[in-house]
Nucleic acid binder design. Structure first.
Lengths: 139, 139
DNA sequence: TTAGCTGCAAACCCTTTGCTGCGTA
DNA sequence: TACGCAGCAAAGGGTTTGCAGCTAA
C-alpha cells in the first residue's frame, strides 16, 4: 500500500499528518462518489472507531483550503467533497439512481463566459448541475 | 391597493388566505430581490408584529409547493424565494455587490440539453449560477 | 362548525467551536 | 519541546414540528 497522492501533497505543503488525517485522505482517495462529511465519517469509522465528526470536518475544511479537495453543493443541504482535479468539470445527477456523472464541455464554458460578458460582467466562476433521467429506462 | 396576483392565484387554487399569508404574499410580490426566509420575516414583521418564523416557513413551503413561488439556492446555505415566472431563467451573482441579475439564454438551454443527451440522458432540469464581477470597476 | 392555520418552544440537521489532553515534527 | 491536532460536548445557523388555541370558509 503506497502512500497516496494526497498524502504526498500534504507533505509537500507542510501539512501535518496524523493517523486520522491519513485515514480520511485515503477515504477520499478511494471514493468513487461525492461523499458528504457524514459519509466520510462513516467510512472512516470502519477503521478508526473513535474518530470524531469534529476531526472529520476540520480535516475536510483544511484539505479544501489547501486545494487538495473541492467542496461541492448538489442542493441537498450538505457539502460534498471530491479530490481536486486538474480540469474543472460539472455534474449531472441521475434523478432515478442519484448517481453523479462528471462532464466537461469546452463549448459550454465558452458560451457561459459570453453570456456573462453580454450582461457586462467578467466571469469568475459558475456552478452548473444537470438533473436528468436515463434515455433508456433500466428499471 | 388591489389584491395581488399571488393572492388571486391562491383563491383559484383553493389555498386558504389568512392575514399573515396575505402579508407574506405581498412581501414577495413587491420584492425586487431574492429574499431568504429571514428576510421575509423581517419585512413582514414591520406590518404584523407577532408573526412567527414558523408561519413564514410554512407559508413559503406551501406557496412553493403550489407553484406560486420558486425556491433558489445561491450557495450560502439558505433558501431564497422569488415569484414563479412564466419563463425559466438563471442567475448571475455580482461577487462585488452581491446583487443578483436574472438572465435567460435560449442558446445556452439548447447546448445544455445537448450535453445531457451526449451523456445518454434526457434533461429534466438544471441549476446554473454565474459568479462574476463588473467589467468596469465602479468602486 | 370544523378543517386548517397560528404562535411558541422544542427539536432537527449540518457544521463549527471551546477546551483539555495528546501526538507529531 | 512546542505547536498543532484529537475528542468531547456544547453552541450555532437554518429549518421543521408538536401542541393547544384561534380563524377563515
Amino acid at each position: 500500500m503506497t502512500a497516496g497522492a494526497l498524502e504526498q501533497a500534504c507533505r509537500e505543503r507542510g501539512i501535518r499528518l496524523s493517523t486520522q488525517r491519513r485515514i480520511i485522505l485515503e477515504a477520499l482517495e478511494t471514493a468513487h462518489d461525492h461523499p458528504c462529511a457524514y459519509d466520510v465519517h462513516q467510512r472512516v469509522a470502519l477503521r478508526h472507531r473513535k474518530i470524531s465528526v469534529a476531526t472529520v470536518y476540520r480535516a475536510l475544511n483544511g484539505f479544501t483550503q489547501a486545494g487538495l479537495l473541492v467542496r461541492r453543493d448538489f442542493g441537498d443541504g450538505k457539502a460534498r467533497y471530491e479530490r481536486a482535479q486538474a480540469k474543472r468539470h460539472d455534474h449531472l445527477v441521475d434523478v432515478r439512481s442519484g448517481r453523479v456523472v462528471e462532464f466537461d464541455d469546452a463549448e459550454l464554458k465558452v458560451l457561459i463566459t459570453r453570456v456573462a460578458a453580454g450582461l457586462g460582467y467578467r466571469l469568475v466562476d459558475y456552478r452548473l448541475e444537470l438533473f436528468a433521467e436515463p434515455e433508456r429506462d433500466l428499471d
